[in-house]
Simulated scan of single mutants.
Amino acid sequence: MRVVVLGAGIVGAACARELARAGLAVTVLDRGGPAAATTAHGEGNVLVSDKGPGPELELARMSRRLWEEALTEAGGRPDAGRAGRAERVEWDPKGGIVVATTDAGARGLEEFAAGQRAAGVTAETLDAPALAAAEPHVTRDFALAVHYPEDAQVQPVGAAAFLLGDALRAGAELRTGAEVLGAVARGGRITAVRTSAGTVEGDAFVNAAGPWSGAVAERLGAPVDVRPRRGEVLVTTPQPPTVFHKVYDADYVGAVGSGAEGLQASAVVESTRGGTILLGSSRRRVGFDDRIRPEVLSVIAGKALRLFPRLAGVPVMRAYGGFRPYVPDHLPVIGPDPRLPGLWHATGHEGAGIGLSVGTGRVLGDLLLGREPEIDAKPFRVDRPAVLFEGDDQ
């Protein structure tokens, strides 16, 4: 079977890896370069802490396990991530700490963490001495703190290159500079895509174009409601060891889950292997407007300072922003498109695509090959109300 993956970001790379390693003939198409768009503008989160009980948490937990398996297989050590091909991934199972700074936030966090514990997630309440030991520079003015040891971090572009490299070693082909323009269909089935670099034939086509998946699907004649949602991040100059986990305030889960178009912001603070500190995060629905807004950066900085007052005066050397693939019900879209046989989707992960990528590739591969996935894939189906536009056949 010939499979064409549309998109060379981390989700497309994960799908290509899974399918190529299963023995399929895989071609990956991208209008730019691999991991050059959304993947390059993320933080590298591999999280379970921000997902409540349900299908996305199940996908996250499976993905977390698959990341470690992939790195171990490549000769790396998941506990350090500094050997063999895995080194470029910069795997860091640092864990996450969620901090509530208000009584209302504490009540919400405690309820959220209780639900996660019931679903099998390790969520450990930290008292003041324990929080101070884990994060010496975090605020002491807090109402509740919860530690999630399963949270991890990767370097996004390195992680995508690792997955795509595995796909290429398994026989996949990468073609860049190929923008999807439309579909060629015969007998109601997609048999090829027309691109700016020519027509590419195949037996199956996987729409993994991230925030552009909606536009790609529309060009192919099977539109899905995947929209861009913008996020920004501030990057400090390299610092002495200051932040030891991924630390974020309890408002983060609400910001991610909000469907509001306006600015949703919360404090997310973490260090990188190079010593810089990443300060996030924001969510805005502004189409593909890529302008950096100083007022948004100001809000991000203010919220970060509330969690880490010691960061006051630390120089910020750059800011970046990117688009995340947003779906109104906040669930990924994984599976076949019933309106156009031969078309598959792997998109809609918003800001969780890095962490969910390998799990998505596994689920997509199982479905395409007629195998039963490890987790229930029905909640991610394409023909659900949040994904198809009104009037589409379901």
Rank of each mutant, 00 (worst) to 15 (best):
V247C: 13
G287W: 11
E218M: 04
A255W: 05
P238W: 01
S258Y: 05
R219H: 08
S282K: 03
V268W: 09
G259Q: 06
F308D: 00
T272A: 02
R285L: 07
R273T: 05
D249I: 08
R284E: 15
V268F: 13
A260N: 03
D290T: 12
G231F: 04
V224L: 12
L307F: 11
D251P: 00
P240Q: 09
D249A: 09
V299D: 14
V224Y: 10
E295F: 15
L307W: 11
E218R: 15
P223D: 06
R293Q: 13
G262S: 10
E295H: 15
H245P: 13
A301E: 08
G257S: 09
G274S: 15
G257L: 14
G262F: 07
E218C: 03
E295C: 11
I292K: 05
S266R: 01
V256L: 13
R230A: 12
R229D: 02
A304S: 15
Y252W: 11
R306H: 14
G275Y: 01
F244W: 13
K246V: 15
V235H: 07
Q239Y: 00
S281C: 12
Y248E: 12
G259V: 11
G280A: 10
V235S: 05
D225Q: 11
A304L: 03
V224C: 06
D251F: 05
V269H: 07
G275L: 02
V233E: 03
A267D: 04
Y252T: 12
L278Y: 10
P294A: 13
V224N: 04
G302Q: 09
K246C: 14
V243E: 07
A222M: 06
D225R: 15
G221Q: 03
L305D: 09
R229F: 05
T236K: 02
R227G: 00
D290K: 12
V243R: 08
G221D: 01
G287Q: 10
R284P: 06
E261I: 03
E270V: 10
L279H: 06
R229I: 01
R285S: 14
S282A: 09
L305G: 02
A222Q: 03
Y252M: 09
G274C: 04
A260P: 00
R285C: 07
P223F: 05
A250L: 03
R219P: 08
A255P: 00
L297V: 08
I277K: 06
I300M: 08
A260C: 01
P294W: 11
A304W: 06
L279R: 03
T272G: 03
S298R: 14
V224E: 02
S258R: 04
F288M: 12
G287L: 10
F308N: 01
A267W: 06
T237P: 02
G221F: 02
Q239E: 11
I292A: 10
T237H: 07
T237Q: 10
R285K: 13
S281M: 09
E261R: 13
A301Y: 15
L297P: 10
K246E: 13
E232G: 00
G254H: 08
K303E: 12
I300F: 10
H245G: 12
S266H: 14
A265K: 00
A304I: 05
G254Q: 05
A255D: 02
V243C: 12
G262L: 07
Y252R: 06
S281V: 08
V268P: 01
L307T: 09
R285V: 07
D251G: 11
G262K: 08
G275D: 01
